[in-house]
């Protein structure tokens, strides 16, 4: 027994070492997933889908929350760049302000892939995978006119003013509704994509304008906030609510007749594409497109049964 013991220990040690070596071989390194905020379920889905896809591809993925703060985002980039990450899947806080972070990462050889939100310098990221917000809001605007009619008073609640998505959505919507002279926008205010702020903004808008018939919100969190304010004011059913994102609570609210329509973005598609592109880039591929728009689909009472869980229920 005593003679067998050293052989047994050696065998165990060999097994442990070979396991370590195998793990080091199969691991492709770490990928950082930097998300503008995890205070909104839509972005949680975006971040988690990116992490999941990166892990499926053999990377260790770490999720960072920028809390909608460019300075917090810059801190994350400092940490990421000093910690040997291979790539960054990036959902920026600001189209201009975040450019410097992406650029510095690229300059240090860490490729950046933007998801959902855009940065205003094309070369500062390898690829930007973005929702086609403008087209999505054109479809939403056309449905708005169909639903509200050509004579109505409405208000608009905008997202973060530094984010291109805010303006792409607003411009897409207005490219339609502004063609109809009978549609009057009584007020346009920002609520930073935040549900609680949107509730407060909607309350003050209803006090200032008792004759609002519809509200267009730049995302679903704000649409739900606006709906809460409308409900509290006893005006549910009299003010039609339109959102954008395709978040589950908004899709359920459409099903229940509380919200009229939303634009379904596909966060999982964007996140998975970004992770896949990062993997292809790290494998040596260099001819990746600079920007990839992802189509947005209108969700309303007629087709809501086809949607849920931040996408289409059935794979197409």
């Amino acid at each position: 027994m005593k003679r067998a013991l050293p052989f047994l220990l050696a065998a165990i040690l060999t097994c442990c070492l070979s396991a370590c070596v195998k793990r080091a071989d199969s691991g492709k390194g770490r990928i950082a997933v930097v998300i503008s905020t995890l205070n909104n379920p839509w972005f949680v889905v975006l971040g988690e889908a990116a992490v999941q896809r990166a892990e499926e591809l053999g990377y260790e993925a770490v999720l960072f929350d920028s809390q909608n703060s460019p300075s917090k985002e810059a801190e994350h980039f400092d940490n990421i760049l000093s910690s040997g990450y291979k790539a960054i899947l990036f959902n920026p806080t600001d189209a201009d302000g975040s450019t410097v972070n992406a650029r510095s990462a690229m300059a240090r050889g860490v490729p950046v892939f933007c998801m959902d939100r855009e940065i205003n310098e094309p070369g500062a990221a390898v690829t930007q995978i973005l929702s086609d917000n403008y087209s999505g809001c054109i479809a939403l605007g056309q449905y708005f006119v169909q639903s509200v009619g050509r004579q109505a008073n409405y208000v608009e609640i905008l997202g973060l003013v530094g984010d291109n998505n805010t303006w792409a959505r607003s411009r897409g919507f207005h490219s339609v509704v502004d063609c109809f002279e009978g549609l009057h926008m009584l007020s346009q205010q920002t609520a930073d994509f935040d549900q609680n702020k949107a509730m407060e903004v909607m309350e003050s808008m209803m006090q200032a304008h008792p004759d609002i018939q519809a509200v267009f919100c730049g995302n679903d969190a704000m649409a739900m906030g606006a709906y809460q304010a409308i409900l509290a004011a006893g005006k549910s059913g009299r003010i039609k609510v339109f959102g954008f994102d395709g978040a589950d609570d908004a899709v359920n609210a459409i099903r229940e007749g509380k919200v009229e329509a939303t634009g379904m973005q596909f966060p999982k598609t964007m996140a998975e594409t970004a992770a896949t592109f990062a993997d292809r880039y790290l494998a040596g591929e260099r001819n990746l497109p600079g920007k990839i728009p992802v189509a947005v689909e209108l969700v309303n009472a007629e087709n809501v049964s086809q949607f849920g869980n931040f996408g289409r229920r059935e794979p197409r």
Partner: peptide, 16 residues
């Protein structure tokens, strides 16, 4: 080509 444009807003302005 979308990659020729500074950002998606500029790309969308072409449509208008």
């Amino acid at each position: 080509d979308i990659d020729d444009f500074q950002n998606t807003m500029a790309f969308n302005e072409i449509s208008s």
